[in-house]
Simulated assay, not measured.
Amino acid sequence: MPTPGTALVTGASRGLGAAIAVRLAADGWAVAVNYRHGRDGALDVVERIRDAGGTAEAFGADVVDEDAVPALLEEVAATLGPVTAVVANATGPHPEIAVEDLTWRDHLDQLEFFVKSPTLLVRAALPGMRAAGGGRVVLIGSDLADRAPAGMSAYVAAKSAQVGLTKTWAKELGPHGITVNLVQPGWIPVERHAGIDTSAYETEVPLGRMGRPEDVAATVAHLVSEAGGFITGQRISVNGGHVL
């Protein structure tokens, strides 16, 4: 597999996705910075990458849309080259909903981001990965799948489903030289958490600090690298030991 090649990072206009995109570009990947609504943010990420000497382009697409995802992969391939690394990071709202108020639509809202979107992305990327002799898939999950807080059953169910996807796809795609792994961050403060008091959470973290987006990005960077080529089917928590 040609590494680095072209990496697609979904939901990369801010937060964890932006940090992952910047790190992969620094490692030599040509990065497709995907966004749905945050075009200005995506362009800012691209500018940061280019200012640092990297290669990146912004691509707007709804990654839960069955027609938009194949078109996205085709556009990325035509602009930067075939995608050989997919980082499925895009997310949406995940409200707290008591079980007595929970609907099937609430479940579907989460499953579309965390099961449907990765499925569409991997399916669309597979021809290019197979042609390249291999590839990398990284799903961005959450350690809430293990912590299972009350009121978050739809979110936890969808994030837990990613564990099954990771294991099954690792077995199925391994013979093609494609690795599949799941990164489960803890609470990593990003832009939307500005002003929130993190002190109570921080006291529960054995390493004694909050995680940073760069911590997640470093883990993803290793998994998509040549050095990470013998790691597959794994879920890796990036949370300072908060869940052990």
Rank of each mutant, 00 (worst) to 15 (best):
G240T: 00
A12N: 07
I188G: 03
V220H: 08
E47W: 01
A18G: 10
P189Y: 04
T10R: 04
T232S: 15
P127G: 09
A71R: 13
T166F: 01
P149V: 10
A150P: 09
V9T: 04
S142P: 04
T198E: 00
A61L: 04
A132R: 05
A157W: 01
A19S: 15
R14L: 13
G208A: 06
A56D: 05
A25G: 04
G128M: 03
V115I: 15
H242K: 14
G240H: 06
D215H: 14
S153K: 06
A88K: 03
S153H: 11
L165Y: 06
R130A: 14
A90F: 02
V183M: 06
G133K: 12
D143A: 07
S160P: 03
H176V: 02
W104C: 06
I140H: 10
G128E: 02
V76L: 05
T6V: 14
L43S: 08
T3S: 12
E202G: 00
A78T: 03
K171S: 11
T119W: 10
A68E: 09
G141F: 07
F59I: 05
D106A: 06
I178S: 01
S237H: 12
D101G: 14
L165F: 13
P185N: 08
A145C: 12
V138Y: 09
S117R: 10
V45A: 01
L223C: 11
T168F: 01
G186H: 02
A25W: 04
D27R: 14
G28P: 02
V238F: 11
G151D: 09
A12L: 10
A98G: 11
L111T: 00
S225E: 08
T232Y: 01
V220Q: 07
Q110K: 07
V46C: 12
G195P: 09
E226P: 05
V63S: 00
N181P: 03
L144Y: 12
A161H: 11
P82L: 07
A56M: 02
S160I: 08
A150C: 05
V205H: 05
A98M: 14
G60W: 03
T103V: 10
P93V: 07
F114T: 00
G41V: 13
G174E: 02
A26E: 12
G54P: 05
S237Q: 13
S199E: 13
Y201R: 13
F59Q: 00
S160R: 15
F230C: 07
P213T: 12
G240D: 00
T103C: 10
P127A: 07
D106F: 01
A221G: 07
R130D: 08
T166Y: 01
H193K: 07
H193E: 13
